[in-house]
Design a protein around this nucleic acid. Structure first.
Length: 547
RNA sequence: GCGCCAGUAGCUCAGUUGGAUAGAGCAUCAGCCUUCUAAGCUGAGGGUCACAGGUUCGAAUCCUGUCUGGCGUACCA
């Protein structure tokens, strides 16, 4: 938050020196604390264009710099030309005072006021149960939606519900085979391309419980009924699993409506009118090569059915038409190929593809004792997200799925999550919150109340200053995590805050010290608690008062 | 073949708009509880940043090539 002030001061100084340059003035926290609190390499960046030695530029810059002496203890030049800034203690008490005033709203802002964001995630077809990969998608999407919401954007959480397409027929046939196997013919052949998962057997037995042999005849109507039964069964389970992870979406956008409301046809017509669609081999092709891509693709098969690209494009067009300013798609790595096609299609229809942000996450592998556990819907032996939630709980699952960058493959070690769950990093974060709560409980029994007017300048201990340094970055961290679509940035940050608090707690007593100091430390603990609570909430993880 | 993601400590991973001595957790070893929760704190060991070149004051980060793993590359979704 103070960076803005510094940046302006540096820009002014550059102006005074008669240097006009668009170059970004970037401050970073040096790895080595001896180098100060913030550091900039601006002098080195300018060295090339100005044809001057970096250290000379730096010293001239400092001469022209007007900063509040009260808040900045020292500004000096180091190394090849770094400018290092060291803040005074009173700088930190000023900062903490502001953080304390935010109270429970710390981290919130109105940065995105009036901007409509649509975050689409999960969007699993109702043909099976959720597995860990879906869980990753769900947690990332939910957290990104939370981040936007926290920054004041108008967020819609959306699930693209696809109950059309060939995969639903496969499900119907799979259910039918299990139904017959359980009902009257144990050797009834199971389709090769069917869904082998055990849940299909459950669907069949539920079907028998409710309807007995009513659908035993192999005809189109019965298959249609089974298809619908399976869809409702699967989607019910999916929603329940999501609820267990506190994931609730606002809109379930049904792919069917794109057909029934004529949107698919509109898109086809528009492509044709623009000369971007053509017939070949009985199919309709989209001329993606005219839009700079490598290959044209079929959008309507010779059977008359559209391929997945067409409804995907039509769906994105609808999202634009519904008035969203930003469209966010959370996809697994297997969807990577569709992205350029959809973006090209959207652009051809006259919408701005730059407003679509696609976040692709890599896969999750579930391992136990070094061996991989299969999670595929088609291989039968499933380890579902529900199974995992049963074993380790929602907080652990969410944290495990969010603690890594989205673009790396994530290894979920079941043995570790199960056996060592008390050493899980998520408990480290929650423990910090619980510890603070406990301090306030003790304060209450002693009749101590946190006052509003507090003298923060009394906080000068190194661990106190270190903690404040972490706390002041909360807002910026939320923004960065949001802009980059990386929940992991927030997760890492919270671990840092928790660590700084644990160290402070270990070194400094909060209660049973002199009144003014106690008040200031309580306030520091309060700010930490609010940051932990809000940060964990954004990640969708509970902030317990006791552990 | 082509495209995307990845390769960093024993393991799992941060760090990549080029910056100062490459970090964390787990694991290993050694310490700290008569005082607000020890699910905590302190310290130690552990590295050819896959490999080979290049760009420059400076490269884990940028460029080229090679190797390894994952995912795509359908008139499946």
């Amino acid at each position: 938050m103070y960076e803005e002030v510094l940046r302006n001061a540096f820009a002014d100084a550059l102006n005074k020196m008669g240097i006009q340059n668009d170059i970004d003035i970037i401050f970073e926290t040096p790895k080595n604390p001896e180098h100060g609190d913030l550091s900039t390499n601006i002098a080195m960046k300018l060295a090339g264009t100005l044809k001057k030695v970096p250290r000379e530029i730096a010293s001239e810059l400092i001469k022209n710099l007007s900063l509040d002496k009260n808040l900045n203890e020292k500004i000096d030049i180091a190394g090849a030309g770094f400018i290092n800034i060291k803040f005074s203690k009173s700088f930190y008490s000023e900062i903490l005072k502001k953080l304390y005033e935010f109270d429970k709203n710390i981290g919130k802002s109105d940065l995105g006021k009036g901007i409509k964001v649509n975050v689409e995630y999960v969007s699993v077809n109702p043909t099976g149960l959720l597995h860990l990969g879906h869980g990753r998608n769900a947690c990332i999407g939910d957290t990104i939606a939370n981040l936007y919401e926290w920054l004041g954007y108008d967020v819609t959480r959306e699930y693209y519900f696809n109950n059309a397409g060939n995969q639903m027929n496969v499900l119907a046939k799979s259910i039918y085979a299990r139904y017959r196997q359980q009902l009257d013919e144990p050797d009834f052949p199971f389709p090769d391309d069917g869904y082998h998962g055990d849940y299909v057997k459950e669907i069949a037995s539920d079907l028998i419980k409710e309807n007995n042999n009513k659908f035993i005849e192999d005809n189109k109507n019965n298959l249609e009924t089974l298809r619908k039964f399976g869809e409702v069964w699967c989607f019910g389970k999916i929603k329940k699993t999501l609820e267990r992870m506190s994931i609730n979406q606002d809109v379930y956008y049904n792919e069917d409506s794109l057909y029934s409301e004529g949107k698919i046809k509109e898109v086809i017509d528009e492509f044709r009118n623009k000369g971007l669609a053509y017939e070949k081999d009985g199919a309709l092709w989209l001329a993606l090569t005219k839009m700079g891509l490598n290959d044209d693709r079929v959008i309507v098969k010779s059977t008359g059915e559209p391929t997945y690209r067409l409804p995907d494009i039509a769906y994105h067009r609808e999202k634009f038409r519904r008035g969203f300013d930003v469209l966010i798609d959370i996809f697994g790595a297997d969807h990577i190929a569709t992205v350029p096609d959809v973006l090209a299609g959207v652009k051809a229809l006259g919408f701005e593809p730059g407003k679509v942000k696609v976040y692709i996450h890599q896969f999750v592998t579930l391992t136990e004792n070094g061996e991989q556990i299969k999670m595929s819907k088609r291989t039968g032996k499933n380890y579902t997200l529900d199974d995992l939630l049963d074993e380790v709980g929602a907080d652990v699952v969410r944290f495990f799925l969010l603690m890594r960058g989205i673009s790396t493959h994530l290894e979920f070690d079941l043995g570790l999550a199960r056996e060592q769950s008390d050493k899980n990093p998520v408990f480290y974060l929650q423990y910090a919150h619980a510890r603070i709560s406990s301090v306030f409980d003790n304060a209450e029994t002693k009749g101590i109340k946190l006052e509003y007017d507090i003298d923060f300048s009394i906080l000068v201990h190194k661990t106190e200053i270190d903690l404040i340094k972490k706390l002041m970055n909360f807002q910026q961290t939320i923004e960065t995590a949001c802009n980059r679509g990386e929940p992991q940035i927030l997760a890492d940050y919270l671990r840092d805050v928790a660590s700084a608090f644990h160290v402070f707690y270990h070194e400094c007593r909060i209660l049973d010290v002199e009144e003014k100091l106690m008040q200031a430390r309580l306030a520091l603990a309060e700010v930490t608690k609010n940051v932990m609570k809000n940060g964990l909430t954004i990640l969708g993880i509970a902030a317990p008062n006791r552990m």
